[in-house]
Structure formats: C-alpha cells, structure tokens
Nucleic acid binder design. Structure first.
Lengths: 191, 191
DNA sequence: TGCAGCATGTAACCTGTTACATGATTAG
DNA sequence: CTAATCATGTAACAGGTTACATGCTGCA
C-alpha cells in the first residue's frame, strides 16, 4: 500500500487553501500574514520548500505564468491525487493524542471539511472531537484534584487554564454539532 | 552583551522543572508522559540532547550518581547562571505576537512564576496577557464580521473556535489576576 | 529615476520525530 | 532466571527560523 503521508501543519494548511482555489506562494504568504491563519509560518524559507515537497509528491502542480521573465509567477493547483489524499486525511479518526498534542491540526482539518466531505462525516468528526476532549478533560480534572495542594499559585492557575481551554473546545464542538444538525436536518450528506 | 538565548519550548519546560527540584532525564520523561505537560515531547531523542545543550550552555549542571556502573544516573541542577537567565526570560514583556503564535510558551512561563518572581511581576504579566489577548480578539472579531459571508460552514466555525478560545484565555487571565490580588493584598511582592 | 511592493528563492542552523540500541536493577 | 522497568543514548531524517539575495512592476 501507499506510504502513510503525515502532513506537516504547514503542508496541510497549504493543501487546504489550494483546495479552495489555485494560488501562488506569495498569495499563501499574504493569507498567513493577514488572516486568522497567523499561526502558520509566512516565511518564504518555509513556504517555498513546502510547495516543492508537495509538488514532488504529486499532490499539487505548479504552472508558470509570465513565462518570458526570469522571475516567473507560479500558480499551484491541487491535483486529483492531492485532493483524494486530502479528503482521506480529513476523515481519519480523531484520537485522544490528537486532542492532547495536535489540537491545531484537528481544527485545521475541520476548517476545510464543508467543501470536501459530507455532513455525516463532519458530524462524526465533531462527536469524536467532543468525546476525546471530554475524556482528556476528566484526566486533567483528576490531576488537579490530586496535585493542587502541592502546586504553587501559578502552577495551579496554569493547570486551570488548560482545563478552561479544553472545556471551551468541548462546548464549541457541541454547539457546532447542534448548528450543523439545524442547518442540514435529517437525511444524510452529499457524500 | 550576552547573546539573547531564545529557548526552545522543551528547553524552557526542562529549565522550569529543574527550578523546582533537581532531576534526571528519566524523571523529566515521566513528568512529560504522565502529567498535564503531555504537550511536550517525552522522547529520549529530544530530552537528552536538550539536556546536553543546556549543560554546554552552563545553565544546568549534571552530576553522576552511581559512579561505578556503565549506566550512570545523571541528576541535573539549575546553575546560578541558569536561574538568573530563567528569571529574566519569565519577566520579558508579553507581545502581541506571543499571544498569536506562542501561547503555549506564555502559559509555560506563567506556570513557573510564583516561585521565582514577585507578585507585582505576576500581575504585570497577567495584565499584559489580557491586553494583548483582547486586542487580538478584536482583530478576529473584525475578521469574522467582514469575511463570514464568504466562508464555508466549517471555515466560519473554525474561526469561531479561535475566538472562543482566546475569549476563554482572556477570562482566565482576569480571573487569575483577581485571585492574585485577593490572596496577596496591597503591598508589593517579594522581589 | 527611484522606491515600494510583488515574487521567488537559498543556506546555515536548530530542534523535534522515529526507530533503534544498550545496560542495570528489582520483583516474582 | 527472567521479565518489567529504570535509565541513557545515537543516527537519519524532516521541517521550521532567520537572514540574505535577487529580479520584476507600477507609479510618482
């Protein structure tokens, strides 16, 4: 079987944006610099090598605009293979470890789902997201009950911040699932 | 002047833990594996090289227990220099960019503050944290107002998640600042 | 003409991941 | 004795950071 390509956060973000429309490296940079995707690196030293990796892997294709000059503008398009692999990666099961160590990756996956997978898959994602988040939340709550007395003021407060933050995520997932059901009632999704 | 040492997340976590008590690499691993610090790498391939870097830099000192055997146990202690540098790094100003791209680093810094800096510095930190978080929150809110119509269901929901999450952080900071004032009333801290 | 912004790239470096390897100690 | 756990490490690789470099384009 094909080797399991685990995307870097930046690679995944690029693929996701290209799934919306073809773009150049510079277009991607601007998005990372100016929108809510500021968490990703906008440095050319990260973006251009990432694009070349994805191209070598056959998941995107670059075509040169403005051929005549020495400074061409390359526009990248998601290939069929790339789109298929991306859809597959979007629907991978949500594990506890993803919630604990790769929350950013989960949210990134979610943000591109509507256009590429059915409503039922989105609902599955949100349900697993809730389950795992709430599970980890219980671990953290047990931990604070057990260790709180031994911790310093700021140590304890930092732990509470973690709990608050996972709690906000769990709430978000439940609310979003409810909205999803409201806007796409009853019968299954498009895929 | 000394070169500005920017710590890797793992390096900072290790220094912080060693500021509480001396430990071996294996002790650190266990903490990263079993406590709320799961977000850090517990792999030997990350921890042992990090310890060696910090030692070479003179910020920690390793002493061998159980000298006789081929598999020694090394216990690392924070040096005076290491402690001073750590305190300095804890009190560095909180910038907008820290909130946007290095939230984890900020929370890590905060978690070790009580034992090393005065109450007034902790309060400064929380105030700057609130200010910057709320500032970024307003940026995100402007963004969702402007772009929401053009976004897909999941794209919009992902943006909302970001807003929820920063909002939770802002609330946490204000609540924590209030608790701090309650428990350490009026007159300045120890440093 | 000159400058700001468009657009792409490279090189050195740092750090983390994965996988592998090794020996020591202790409980059953 | 032997398995689990303690304890430390290395090598190959991947990906991001910072700093630098270069050329094109439109406009004042």
């Amino acid at each position: 079987m094909e080797k399991q390509t685990v995307d870097s956060p930046l690679g995944l973000a690029i693929i996701g944006l290209l799934s919306i429309r073809p773009m150049s490296g510079y277009d991607l940079r601007k998005i990372f610099l100016t929108t809510g995707m500021k968490a990703f690196s906008a440095s050319p030293g990260a973006i251009y090598p990432a694009l070349r990796r994805l191209e070598k892997d056959g998941r995107i294709e670059g075509t040169v605009e403005r051929k005549t000059t020495l400074r061409p503008r390359m526009v990248f398009t998601l290939s069929q293979k790339g789109r298929a692999a991306f859809v597959e990666s979007l629907t991978r099961p949500v594990k506890r470890e993803d919630v604990v160590r790769r929350m950013d990756n989960l949210l990134l996956r979610f943000s591109f789902m509507s256009e590429l997978v059915g409503v039922d898959k989105i609902a599955d994602f949100l349900r697993a997201f809730s389950t795992e988040t709430e599970g980890y939340l219980r671990e953290l709550e047990a931990e604070i009950r057990e260790y709180a007395p031994g911790l310093s003021f700021s140590g304890r407060a930092a732990l509470k911040q973690g709990i608050d933050s996972f709690r906000a995520n769990a709430r978000w997932a439940r609310k979003t699932l409810a909205e999803l059901k409201e806007h796409h009632p009853k019968k299954g999704g498009k895929k």
